[in-house]
Simulated assay, not measured.
Amino acid sequence: MGNTSEKPIVQKQYGNTWEFVYPLSIIDERVSDEFWEAVEFLDDSDLIAEKMLKKLVLEHPYYIDAYVHLSIAYRSQEKTFESLLTAEKAFNVGIGCLPKAFNLKKDQLIWPMSDNRPFLRACQNWGVELQYHTKYSEAVEIYRLNLALNPEDHQGIRYLLLETLFALKDYKQAEDLLNQYPDDFTIEFKFGIVAVHILNDNLKLADQHLEEAVQTNTFFIDEVTRTKHVKPLPYRIPGEPNFDAGIPTRSVQEAYGYWERNKELYHNKKIISYFKTVQKSDTR
């Protein structure tokens, strides 16, 4: 037990790129096996995962990934206060490992260096918890930090940031973010830029972006204009009726999921009216 309180260190590698280095007590094979066994219980048996992860963080108080997944276990059980506190703990443990020489404004902890991933996950999870608890301005700060640390955004942080900016009704920052990724061909960004232009009463620009948006998902306009929204059945691969195949791009499941995450935005009367006008013009 003597080494279990050893703190990870963060070392400079090259340029402004740094990397976490974990003590032997955390990377020990037995400890690692316990962690991954706990992770496998998530979703199916969250209470078991919770108990196993609690044991790990008691024995290893600097085990960032264990805190992150403990927070997820709490959230899955709707223990929302515990999930918030544990997500904050994971983030603060990681921040506490950064040396004074580390400059949060310009230094990076990139995702391809795999030992940086626990802290990057801690950033993401803390942002998600803040967003879930409607602490949107704080969530924006964490998401921006996450993107600054790992600009290539292997985690899809920009989509969470965009959702949060829309929740804040900060359409100027949302538009700026959308313009930073002109080649992002996702439902979130292509319909996001259409929504921004509608809200800014620039329907000419909305029209210009609409064709590309529809190419990302042909079902979404119908989803927005429905009076009653019903979650579609899960996507199934033919011949595999019991296999959950996830949410394919361009699917009705994707359209519903995107609407569900941003329904306050898409309840806006301007957006609904615009899409109804589009539907009418398509049926002529």
Rank of each mutant, 00 (worst) to 15 (best):
M1Q: 12
G2L: 15
G2T: 15
T4C: 14
Q11F: 13
Y14D: 12
N16F: 14
N16S: 15
T17M: 11
W18Y: 15
W18S: 05
Y22Q: 00
I27L: 04
D28E: 06
R30Q: 07
S32G: 02
D33S: 09
F35V: 09
E40W: 12
L42R: 06
D43A: 08
D44R: 15
S45E: 14
K51V: 12
M52G: 04
L53E: 07
V57T: 13
L58W: 09
L58N: 14
H60Q: 10
Y63E: 03
Y63Q: 05
I64L: 06
L70N: 02
Y74T: 01
E82L: 08
S83V: 03
T86S: 06
F91I: 04
C97E: 08
C97R: 07
L98S: 01
K100Q: 13
A101E: 15
A101R: 14
F102Y: 12
N103F: 13
Q108I: 05
Q108M: 07
L109A: 08
M113V: 07
D115W: 14
N116M: 09
R117F: 08
P118K: 05
P118E: 02
P118V: 05
C123K: 11
N125R: 03
W126P: 10
G127E: 06
Y132K: 12
H133M: 09
T134P: 06
K135L: 12
A139M: 02
V140D: 06
A148T: 12
L149T: 03
P151D: 03
Q155P: 07
R158D: 04
R158S: 13
Y159I: 09
L160H: 12
L161K: 07
L161C: 09
F166W: 15
A167W: 01
L168T: 12
K169C: 14
D170W: 10
D170R: 04
Y171M: 02
K172N: 13
Q173F: 09
Q173P: 10
L178N: 05
L178T: 07
N179D: 08
Q180P: 01
P182V: 11
D183L: 08
I187G: 06
E188R: 02
E188S: 13
F191A: 08
G192V: 06
A195I: 05
H197K: 15
N202G: 04
A206D: 01
Q208S: 13
E212F: 06
E212T: 03
T216E: 00
T216C: 05
F219H: 15
V224L: 01
V224N: 01
T225G: 03
K231C: 04
K231E: 06
K231F: 04
P234C: 06
Y235T: 03
G239C: 11
E240Y: 13
D244V: 09
D244I: 05
R250N: 01
V252E: 00
Q253L: 05
E254C: 02
E254A: 04
A255I: 00
A255Q: 00
Y256K: 01
Y256L: 03
G257F: 02
G257I: 00
E260H: 14
H267W: 04
K269V: 02
K270E: 04
F275P: 01
Q279R: 15
K280R: 06
S281L: 03
